[in-house]
Design a protein around this nucleic acid. Structure first.
Lengths: 209, 209
DNA sequence: CCAAACAAACATACTTGCGTGTTCGTAATA
DNA sequence: TATTACGAACACGCAAGTATGTTTGTTTGG
């Protein structure tokens, strides 16, 4: 540890911003969006509120940056999980993968921030583009791997992501992690049976009514 | 309309409490938990803040009552939807049914309140028992209709409910209702394929790893 | 049946705590 | 020494809770 006594300005900036990001994620995860006050975040990051406001003009800006920051971490994590090529080849692999990524505290924190979007116009405008980029990236990743038309792909990505997100909420409400995971396994089972080849073409007949 | 000039005390109580409940649901739905201030709720209910505090000692008590109130409405709605016996016989019927119930504003509002539970201890203690009763009721309803062991049932109920809840969040973030519904249809498709007989016994092999 | 006494429902105004943004001062780096 | 990073203290607004007054309904003694 022991940060050198003399750091470059860029290092100082990066380190305190990172500390603030981690503190913000932790605080939002534990206390919810409303409970994650700027004073508390600064305190847990080991800096003053002045430092926080120096780097982020407003709470909304801080939170929007958190979304962006987590998004980048998640991308890395997806890359790591898919690195050896043994996972992610079949659609049914994805519930577990997405669960590993989104059930982390950062996933919960982002979800909180997304919901807070509704009562905070500034936050909404900052977060919206980021969030759209995320979903689009997910769909394009799927496109590269599986078949299926655009609508099927979008419906599948949405179902997996938001089922997982929903279950992460349940998980933290009941504080029974193992139990919730059973539902993730069930989703995998459903996908295995419905798309035995692992391709998305099997899920085509989504259109009716 | 024209409420009679003279109402009994009980009528007065019931009417303003109902007005407050509806206003609270609407406000939380539109503005999120944080944005639904007591002043705003009272205003939209057409009563004073004093009236609100007379009936509910605290904001937490009001919100907890909302959860209870919505829960009862939802139970009625389930009964109505299942009344003619044409629906709900197969497991794959349930995504649509749950969607119809939980995608209403009241469903979103309750979800918001549930999340707010984390930053508000008083709220948590008031809401927790209610929420546990709800899940239990859902599981028992399933038990009466379908087979499957207890774990499978619980996993299935959780998956359906929280997948739907997650999708309702997505729905209001993207403001594209029809698109999100496609994911609900997909979930039904998955269940149809995985449990063709409609029974839950088909979903048994949930246990692994 | 009436009127006074009571109780419950509702309204208004105040108080207080808290969280954000801001300002100004200090330390570290370039 | 100039600029950037950071810290301490302050100011402002807002929202929940509280205290007190007013209206409406209910009950009871005559």
């Amino acid at each position: 540890m022991a940060t050198r006594l003399r750091r470059t300005q860029e290092e100082r900036t990066n380190e305190t911003r990172a500390a603030l990001m981690e503190a913000a994620v932790s605080a939002v995860h534990r206390l919810g969006y409303g409970g994650a006050t700027t004073a508390l975040i600064a305190d847990e990051a080991g800096v003053s509120r002045g430092a926080l406001t120096h780097h982020f003009g407003s709470r909304a800006e801080l939170m929007a940056t958190v979304v962006q920051w987590v998004y980048e971490k998640e991308l890395e994590l997806y890359r790591d999980l898919l690195a050896d090529g043994s996972r992610g080849q079949r659609v049914s692999d994805w519930p577990d993968i997405v669960w590993e990524v989104l059930s982390k505290p950062s996933g919960l924190a982002v979800l909180e921030i997304l919901q807070a979007t509704r009562s905070d116009r500034e936050l909404a405008e900052r977060v919206k583009p980021v969030q759209m980029a995320i979903e689009q990236a997910g769909i394009e990743t799927m496109q590269a791997r599986f078949g299926g038309d655009d609508d099927t792909r979008r419906a599948t990505v949405r179902l997996i992501i938001w089922a997982i997100r929903g279950l992460t909420i349940e998980q933290m409400l009941v504080s029974d992690p193992t139990g919730v995971k059973a539902s993730v396994d069930l989703l995998r089972l459903l996908l295995e049976r419905a798309a035995p080849t692992g391709s998305m073409d099997d899920l085509q007949p989504v259109h009716r009514s």
